[in-house]
Design a protein around this nucleic acid. Structure first.
Lengths: 205, 205
DNA sequence: CCCTTCATCATCCGAACGGATGACAAGCGG
DNA sequence: CCGCTTGTCATCCGTTCGGATGATGAAGGG
């Protein structure tokens, strides 16, 4: 029964989930064993049913797909994660692959591509849409923010001052400034406004 | 026979088309009689099969959905047009309804809503997602930034200071500050970082 | 013709920010 | 064991912001 590929679909659109179910249910050897409509829910489902492949949307309300990927990888899921999304921005692609996704496909991919991608993934072969490949080869910024730096940035993006960030994170203002300075350097900016923009584009916020 | 609602699906994503087919094929009284993967193709198909309802995606490569809607309306199609899209920006909503769409739903709508929407449309009742309603009544964002305010904000989001924005836009720093102050008030924030975030979220940048 | 919107400019001032620099502790991996 | 990363904290200082307030002129709709 190692031939049966078990799949979990994580997507906030019922329509898309139905479409994927329709596609895979007609394909022998592939089986959808779970669905979720948000990142956090997806994590729970995946941990429960332990699928071979996870199809993950990136942009979802109430829990970013990137976060979900990161969580799954941190928890040592054996499942291969295939990002299946509408957008092909470098930021999304790099964020997803950086978080630990094994593949990146666009939703406008033909059915055949999708099926082959899942089989490839299950066999251990990574899957990259041409756009994803281009983003990888053309990339320059592998600078990753630390968790703390991201937390600080979030407060700042919400309109907080260094002081409020310090209070919220229970550290001194000096520490907040240090984190920000480091984040600026990594993001190649020199003020909070630009930092928020870049972080946003990279899906960090 | 008037009970059978004939539907055409126009969407560039095979996955979405499959999903819709799956949803409607299980529903008695509804039948999908045609598919298209682009706006122009959709027009052709609709003119041929003369459906009761058209499900139309808005953002598609090689032919905007809005154009297709306008064309269909101009040709006097009796079909009711339901926009089914991912985005709920005021711009998309107003453009679609302005072009002659009879309904606007988001793709994250539950199956039941979708089915009801199609039946409502076929019965002549317009269908509007809450977001679409909000866009129409204008209550959601009566606060629109002026072109100048957006220009200033863009420079700021790029890491510029008030001074650089002033230079780039060839105005005085005082003017830049005024624009920013107005933008802050409209976006309900009190500093540039938060302004950038909100503007980003609203698709202004 | 008046009123509103948009864009422009100015001044004052306290608060916040960013840069530079140095320091210390914990944890991880080579 | 040493180096690197991460997170913590501090001081100093010049620059920049944001708030308050007021004013002018062009454009456009009622």
């Amino acid at each position: 029964m190692s031939d049966l590929i078990r799949i979990v679909v994580v997507d906030d659109h019922p329509i898309v989930r139905d479409g994927l179910i329709g596609i895979f249910s007609r394909e022998p050897g592939l089986e959808i064993v779970g669905e979720a409509s948000s990142g956090p829910e997806g994590v729970v489902v995946v941990m429960q049913v332990r699928p071979d492949v996870v199809l993950m949307d990136l942009r979802m309300p109430g829990g970013a797909g990137v976060e979900a990927i990161r969580t799954l990888v941190e928890r040592g899921t054996p499942a291969r994660i295939l990002v299946l999304t509408t957008y092909d921005t470098d930021h999304d692609i790099l964020a997803a692959l950086g978080a630990g996704a094994h593949g990146y496909l666009l939703k406008d991919a033909p059915r055949a591509d999708l099926i082959r991608a899942v089989k490839d993934l299950a066999a251990g072969r990574p899957v990259l849409a041409p756009q994803a490949l281009a983003a990888l080869t053309g990339r320059r910024n592998d600078q990753t923010l630390t968790p703390r730096e991201i937390q600080v940035l979030r407060v700042i993006a919400g309109g907080g001052t260094n002081k409020t960030a310090a209070d919220e994170l229970m550290v001194s203002e000096a520490t907040v400034k240090t984190h920000l300075a480091h984040a600026y350097a990594k993001l190649d900016v020199s003020d909070r406004a630009a930092a928020v923009r870049v972080a946003f584009e990279r899906g960090l916020l």
